[in-house]
């Protein structure tokens, strides 16, 4: 294995988990949900931006604990559920899984790398959309369409947005 590979793929986490102030962990997810509720009213094309998902991925990656990721995902997902007209738990379950897997990934990889962040942003968006679609069919029996090409394209856009967003959120980390 090359040095770069060893640097990326670690047996044990090299870094400890990042810490955030309490207000950051509350305000940022809340702002992401508010963005999704309010901004598409004026800019409809921004409805494709899944900021609550990106925030879930970021906090789960930074906490580097699958349990923390699980709870972060469940919390954000349930709030998102309560603002939709679906039964509570649909976004909750999907984001719980996203948080858990993101937490697991962060234990193995160096997640400060922008390339890896882009790939993870894209992967988790696709996973989120696909699993949500599966749950809608399996649990609620709703026949929704799944446009693969559109999902892939929107996934790329979300991954692109994830880079500056994660960079901005890095500034809110507690230092020392």
């Amino acid at each position: 294995m090359t040095d770069y590979g060893e640097h990326l793929l670690l047996d044990k986490p090299r870094k400890t988990s990042s810490h955030f102030r309490v207000w950051v962990t509350l305000v940022v997810p809340f702002a992401a949900i508010l963005f999704q509720v309010y901004v598409p009213l004026f800019f409809q094309y921004l409805s494709y931006l899944e900021l609550p998902l990106l925030v879930t991925v970021y906090f789960s990656l930074m906490r580097r604990q699958p349990v923390a990721g699980t709870f972060i995902g469940a919390g954000i997902g349930l709030v998102q559920d309560s603002l939709s007209h679906q039964p509570l738990g649909m976004f909750g379950i999907v984001k719980t899984l996203v948080g858990y897997f993101a937490g697991n990934v962060s234990m193995r990889f160096e997640v400060d790398n922008p390339v890896l962040r882009f790939i993870l942003g894209f992967f988790f968006f696709f996973f989120h959309q696909f699993f949500y679609w599966v749950l809608m069919q399996a649990l609620l029996g709703q026949q929704l369409g799944f446009d693969l090409a559109q999902t892939l394209m929107v996934g790329m856009l979300n991954a692109l947005v994830a880079l500056p967003l994660f960079h901005f959120l890095d500034k809110l980390k507690e230092t020392g």
């Binding site: 699958p66 039964p87 909750g92 379950i93 697991n104």
Partner: peptide
Amino acid sequence: RNLTVLLLVILAQLLLLGYQV
């Protein structure tokens, strides 16, 4: 531990979902 917590959280949400449906 991690997997157990995950399963418990998902189970709780499934129960919530099942109750509503």
